[in-house]
Amino acid sequence: KTRWTREEDEKLKKLVEQNGTDDWKVIANYLPNRTDVQCQHRWQKVL
């Protein structure tokens, strides 16, 4: 388990703006080493 970088956080924010929060698998495709569940959790709990 690796810490999220600032770059990953920024990328996640942009991806959510573009794609919404309905399909985390699509978002995870753009973030290597991150699963859809990790992306969703990061968005809901941290950002």
Rank of each mutant, 00 (worst) to 15 (best):
N19M: 14
T2N: 03
K25W: 06
W43T: 03
R6Y: 11
T35N: 04
R42V: 02
H41I: 11
I27C: 03
W24R: 01
C39M: 02
N19T: 09
E8F: 00
N29R: 13
L47Q: 03
K25E: 09
A28W: 01
L47V: 12
P32K: 10
K25C: 14
R34G: 01
N19R: 09
T21L: 04
E7Q: 12
P32V: 10
A28E: 03
E8Y: 01
Y30Q: 15
K11M: 07
H41C: 10
Q18D: 05
V46Q: 13
G20K: 06
T21M: 13
T21I: 12
W4C: 00
V16Q: 00
Q40H: 12
E8K: 01
Q44S: 10
W43Q: 04
Q18C: 10
K13W: 06
R42H: 14
W4I: 01
Q40K: 07
D36Y: 07
T5N: 07
D9G: 03
G20M: 06
G20L: 05
V26Y: 13
P32A: 10
C39G: 00
D23N: 14
K13E: 03
K11H: 08
E8N: 03
Y30C: 06
V26R: 13
K45I: 11
T5R: 05
E17W: 09
E10Q: 14
R42P: 03
Q44G: 11
C39E: 01
H41S: 14
R6I: 15
I27N: 02
L15R: 05
W24E: 00
W24F: 07
D9L: 03
L31R: 00
V37Q: 10
Q18N: 10
L15Q: 04
L47S: 09
E8V: 02
A28P: 01
W4T: 00
G20W: 04
T2C: 05
A28C: 08
T35C: 04
Q38L: 04
Q44E: 15
H41E: 13
K14H: 15
L47P: 06
L31D: 01
D22F: 14
R34E: 01
K11L: 10
K25S: 13
D23W: 01
T21N: 08
Q44K: 12
Q38V: 05
N29C: 10
E8I: 00
T21W: 04
Q40G: 04
P32W: 04
Q38A: 14
Q44C: 12
K13F: 07
Q18E: 07
K14F: 07
R6M: 13
K14E: 13
W4V: 02
T35A: 14
K14P: 01
L12G: 00
E17R: 14
K13L: 09
D22E: 08
R42C: 02
E10L: 13
G20R: 04
T21Y: 11
L12W: 04
N19H: 06
H41A: 14
D23T: 06
T5Q: 03
D9F: 01
W43M: 06
D23C: 11
E10M: 14
I27E: 01
D36N: 10
K45P: 02
R6N: 09
K13S: 11
Q44A: 11
V26M: 15
E7M: 10
A28G: 06
V37A: 12
W4M: 02
R3F: 15
V16N: 00
Y30T: 08
D36L: 06
R6Q: 14
E7H: 10
E7W: 06
W4G: 01
N19F: 08
P32H: 08
L47M: 15
W24K: 02
R42N: 04
E7Y: 11
P32D: 14
K13Y: 14
L31S: 02
A28L: 01
T21R: 05
W43D: 04
G20A: 06
K45H: 13
N19I: 06
K1W: 02
